[in-house]
Write a protein that binds this DNA or RNA. Structure first.
Length: 1005
RNA sequence: GCCCGGGUGGCGGAACUGGUAGACGCGCUGGAUUCAAAAUCCAGUUCUGGCAACAGAGUGCGGGUUCGAUUCCCGCCCCGGGUACCA
């Protein structure tokens, strides 16, 4: 066989990478052992939803980072668990199913294959033997099983943990129930049930008992507000609603109460909040969760109706001290009492207002502070202390789902109340004296500082004291009580969708029961269509024959997307277990995730739910820890770089005697599709641009025949007056694959669409057509999606891995631009050249003692790279490798021991090339992943001198070398004696000289 | 609106506890090598002025603290993300 000598010495990434991926897969190099002498380390990625579009370069960013870290930990002697799987239930597959009738399972399977193929190309060290898919019945069997545990549990506030519901039943049998407030059984949990005695309980029939228990179960049926779209027969997410109508089809959407399964996450509010402190997460994510949980201390207060003493409005306030500043009470428009409080003469107005606010999304209602709306109901309530009559309003700035859905408005001390009162001309009584100058006419005084005035028994108290006193007094008269409120709401757990886990519930006599555990999994039934039924039932209701034990109706909603992802990290430890969701021994060994990498967009969804489920499983004694993810890093989004061509829209001008008549001359002319290169698009310069004027003339000349005809048939148009103008220049997205370095491949572009075939291009002076660009989200419609595939085939996986890391800090949002990927590719080739391969593909290296410089370069790199890894600063890590290879190249280093260490150091970043070089260094194939990660020796880094920058008034001017250990006095003297110093002193005596030993000298003049 | 993150050359970014702003890479300019190209190597590259030495300005804007501020404090502007059924 003829060998191309030139090629054999070059870095052949394609063959190398293929070879090593095959080796890893055949040898199961990265299979994690359950139980090992080594310390364990669990590195987890947020698993992907396998969408039809496949992976784009943004997806692997976090996977590459976690893979580098996993490989690093492995080299440090840890037993690493690094699995991957798929969050394979989800809307897009269902949407596709609705459109095409194809079963989502099939689409999902195809997408997963594509994902796997793409993931494999990048050389990840995943242990694929542990793969999970949330849509696989062997997986969702256990999601359903956990749901059943939740259903059969309640939260015992006394023990502050979840317990089996039987313990609650026993308590009821013994001591009954004291009612809502301060009951040891409910704690902070909102329930609305009347007190009963033990005897009463025992006399209740099954269905009453079950109804009562439903108020305590952690998985329960509840009436919740949803965005209902009657035309689509389904509930919509807030972001599926645009401007009050559905994004798909533009149908009206209304707020509606609907009975649905919910999970009582609110029971865990306090624990979810307090245990955040011990997590090694970003402060920003922790803040998001804290705000989401939204703990506020305050007081509930009852305002009795003037017309009916038995009816009262309950409000929650964090400022009970301002009780004497209440000027009105506002109900959310959806509040249950609105009807009762609306007087006959206001009925029409109120109903109109309710309809209006129904069409506004919750987000709109909160965000829009400029539009102040509301209506007076016509009724009044009594002030609990003064017994004054207070008007009851409705206003959509009050949300039904938060607190009690009603506020006592204190306009002088709350911004929203203030704006509302100003707008409707309601009184603004001042009850807190600001301790600074304050114009109460202009702005509400909301500080929790100052003395109470006009407030009866609160007068003279500081706000903080007044809050305590007010609660005491309110409790004394039985009109409310001190209370902690959480913004966190229970999580709606039912979806009106097909492609999700069936909820393992069946109905008997209208009562929900869980199916027997031995009947799990409850498989998704086949249906004829993936749409809701004609009467608005979810798609599962289409399965007519689908009945439990052949007779009982199943629940027809399915679980939400976050169900499967709330516990998947546990399943990886024991992915094939058919008897348990995870074995106790395995979960005891692997414990929780040591490092979790994923997007910050999951802050208040998945990351909160997973914490909730983990705490529940901990309470139930299944696992020994109550937090899933010890440390978390959030990777930033990668934005696309879209390219644009600029299309000209022509306008024809002419002179005519008929002012009112429009001649559509454009229609008769042959006007070419024209694109302007970037620098020609400035419309202001169009008139003076000779090239364009000339071009327009050419078009006119080309159209001579048509023009003559027009002049002939339309004598009103002045001869030779027709002229072309550029009316508009519109940027059009052009596929980035037709653009190289902003230069358009004109021929390819012309061939991309028939209508561009004859297009004309006005180029730059050098003949190139230069495109414009913009940084935006990657999406198909913007033609800016960069998939990893073509980059891997063009540059190799190692280059892609390093380039993605080199782009910038992992956690930052950053634009994707392939322009500089060849920099990383050059780096790997430069590394390759250090090995001096001869024509037999043998590295020509020396075994001699490395030089001082060699060792200094190596150990500096070891120190920096290790430090970078520990700080998750992968981009500076790549830079440090580049500096290292540059220095070794300059030193002409072919030293085997130096290169061997470097190969180990680099292998987490660029595993394929390192495996190859490892073997070429004379090591046994496959042993690299068991090598020992190098440690730096600071002896090699010691230098004898320090280079001091000498600055004057903080501005560095020149440098002087001083020996290490020279004291500040000596340095000062030397600096003053230095010839350059005099120049900057300009004859003046320095006021002060600051010497920071080992760093800098600053002369103050 | 609320909460969170960010703003440094032509571009991506570096500067870790306040200590030489612009490491590293891209791009660009010039040169070497080559029949030529690719690849490679060398030099330059924040801006303004200057042949240069050098001088001045400079980390979104305006103030402040400090011998010294990209870094700390106060007040603004702009961009991005989240905001409960997209995952």
């Amino acid at each position: 066989m003829l060998l191309d000598l030139f090629n054999i010495m070059e870095y052949q990434f394609q063959e190398i990478e293929k070879k090593w991926r095959k080796f890893w897969s055949e040898n199961q190099t990265f299979k994690a052992e359950d139980f090992s002498e080594k310390p364990k380390y669990y590195v987890l990625d947020m698993f992907p939803y396998p969408s039809g579009a496949g992976l784009h370069v943004g997806h692997p960013l976090g996977y590459i980072a976690s893979d580098i870290f996993a490989r690093f930990k492995r080299l440090q002697g840890f037993n690493v668990l690094h699995p991957m799987g798929y969050d394979s239930f989800g809307l897009p597959a269902e949407q596709y199913a609705i459109q095409t009738g194809q079963h989502p399972e099939k689409t999902t399977e195809e997408n997963i294959l594509r994902y796997r193929d793409q993931l494999d190309q990048i050389g990840f060290s995943f242990d694929w033997s542990r793969e999970v898919r949330t849509s696989d019945p062997s997986y969702y069997k256990w999601t359903q099983w956990i749901f059943i545990q939740l259903f059969h549990s309640w939260y015992n506030p006394k023990l502050d943990k979840a317990e089996k519901i039987e313990t609650l039943i026993k308590l009821f049998e013994k001591q009954g129930f004291e009612g809502n407030f301060n009951s040891p059984f409910t704690g902070g949990v909102e329930v609305d049930i009347k007190a009963f005695t033990a005897e009463e309980w025992n006399s209740f029939d099954e269905s009453i008992k079950r109804n009562i228990l439903m108020n305590f179960r952690l998985a329960y049926l509840d009436n919740t507000w949803v965005n209902w779209c009657p035309a689509l027969g389904t509930v919509l997410a807030n972001d599926e609603i645009v401007g009050g109508v559905s994004e798909r089809g533009g149908h009206p959407v209304e707020r509606k109460k609907m009975q649905q399964w919910s999970l009582r996450i609110t029971a865990y509010a306090e624990r979810l909040l307090s245990s955040l402190d011990n997590l090694d997460w970003n402060d920003s994510i922790k803040d998001m969760q804290r705000n989401w949980i939204g703990k506020s201390k305050g007081c509930s207060i009852k305002f009795s109706s003037v017309s009916n003493e038995a009816v009262f409005i309950e409000v929650f306030t964090t400022r009970p001290d301002t009780i004497f500043g209440v000027s009105y009470v506002t109900l959310a428009p959806e509040h249950e009492l609105v009807k009762q409080f609306t007087t006959l003469e206001n009925k029409e107005k109120i109903e109109a207002y309710i309809t209006y606010s129904k069409n506004r999304s919750e987000r709109e209602r909160q965000a829009d502070v400029k539009t102040i709306t509301g209506e007076f109901t016509g009724s009044y309530v009594y002030h609990p202390f003064t017994m004054e009559k207070i008007p009851v309003w409705i206003g959509d700035y009050v949300l039904a789902g938060y607190g009690s859905g009603a506020v006592m408005a204190v306009p002088a001390h709350d911004e929203r109340d203030f704006r509302f009162a100003k707008h409707f001309d309601l009184p603004i009584p001042i009850v807190v004296q600001a301790n600074q100058k304050w114009d109460y006419e202009i702005e509400a005084y909301t500080e929790k500082q100052g003395k109470l005035i006009h407030s009866n028994f609160l007068n003279g108290l500081e706000v903080k004291e007044a809050i305590i006193k007010a609660i005491e007094e309110i409790e004394k008269i039985g009109k409310g009580q001190g209370k902690v409120n959480y913004r966190l709401r229970d999580a709606v757990f039912g979806r009106q969708r097909y492609w999700g886990e069936p909820i393992p519930i069946y109905y008997k006599n209208g009562q929900p029961y869980t199916i027997d555990e031995c009947d799990l999994p409850l498989n998704l039934p086949s249906v004829d269509k993936y749409l809701p039924t004609e009467d608005g039932e979810p798609p599962l209701a289409r399965a007519k024959e689908w009945k439990y034990k052949g007779q009982f109706e199943y629940e027809t909603t399915t679980m939400p997307g976050w169900a499967g992802s709330s516990w998947y990290f546990l399943r990886y430890m024991d992915a094939k277990n058919e008897k348990e969701f995870v074995s106790k021994q395995k979960v005891e060994y692997w414990k929780n995730v040591d490092l979790y990498i994923g997007g910050a967009e999951h802050a208040t969804g998945h990351l909160l739910y997973a914490r909730f489920w983990t705490k529940f499983l901990y309470d139930q004694g299944f696992i020994s820890f109550d937090e899933p993810f010890k440390k978390m890093i959030n990777q930033g989004m990668i934005l696309g770089r879209s390219s644009f061509v600029y299309k000209v829209f022509w306008e024809v001008s002419y002179k005519t005697t008929l002012v009112n008549q429009i001649f559509e001359i454009e229609k008769y002319l042959d006007l070419p599709t024209t694109f302007l290169s970037k620098s020609k698009t400035d419309i202001k310069n169009q008139m003076f641009n000779n090239e364009i004027i000339e071009f327009k003339n050419k078009i006119i000349i080309k159209n001579t025949k048509q023009l003559n005809e027009i002049y002939q048939t339309n004598p009103e148009i002045e001869k030779n007056s027709i002229y072309l103008n550029v009316k508009l220049i519109i940027p059009i997205h052009v596929d980035i694959y037709l653009v190289d370095n902003d230069k358009l491949n004109i021929e390819a572009f012309k061939n991309s669409r028939p209508e561009y075939k004859e297009a004309v291009f006005i180029c730059e002076d050098n003949g190139d057509y230069i495109c414009g660009y913009e940084i935006e989200k990657m999406s198909k419609s913007k033609f800016n999606v960069q998939t990893p595939d073509e980059l891997v085939s063009k540059f190799g996986a190692d280059t892609l891995r390093m380039y993605e890391m080199f782009l910038g800090p992992l956690e930052q949002t950053k634009p994707w631009d392939t322009k500089s990927i060849n920099g990383v590719s050059n780096f790997l080739r430069k590394l390759w050249r250090l090995f001096n391969f001869d024509e037999h593909y043998v590295a020509q290296l020396t075994n001699e003692e490395p030089t001082k410089d060699n060792l200094k370069t190596l150990h500096k790199t070891i120190q920096k790279v290790t430090d970078d890894l520990n700080r998750f600063s992968f981009n500076t890590g790549v830079s440090n490798f580049m500096i290292c290879v540059n220095e070794l190249t300059e030193q002409k280093c072919n030293n085997k021991s130096i290169l061997q260490e470097l190969v180990i150091l680099l292998s987490p970043y660029a595993p394929h090339i390192c495996e190859e070089l490892w073997v070429k260094l004379g090591n046994v194939a496959g042993t690299l992943s068991n090598a020992k990660f190098p440690e730096f020796n600071k002896e090699y880094l010691i230098s004898e001198t320090i280079n001091y920058p000498i600055s004057f008034n903080g501005k560095a001017r020149f440098n002087i070398e001083f020996p290490v250990g020279m004291d500040s006095k000596e340095i000062e003297a030397q600096v003053l004696a230095h010839a350059n110093t005099a120049k900057y002193l300009e004859g003046k005596t320095p006021k002060k000289i600051i010497v920071v030993v080992g760093r800098i000298v600053n002369v103050v003049i």
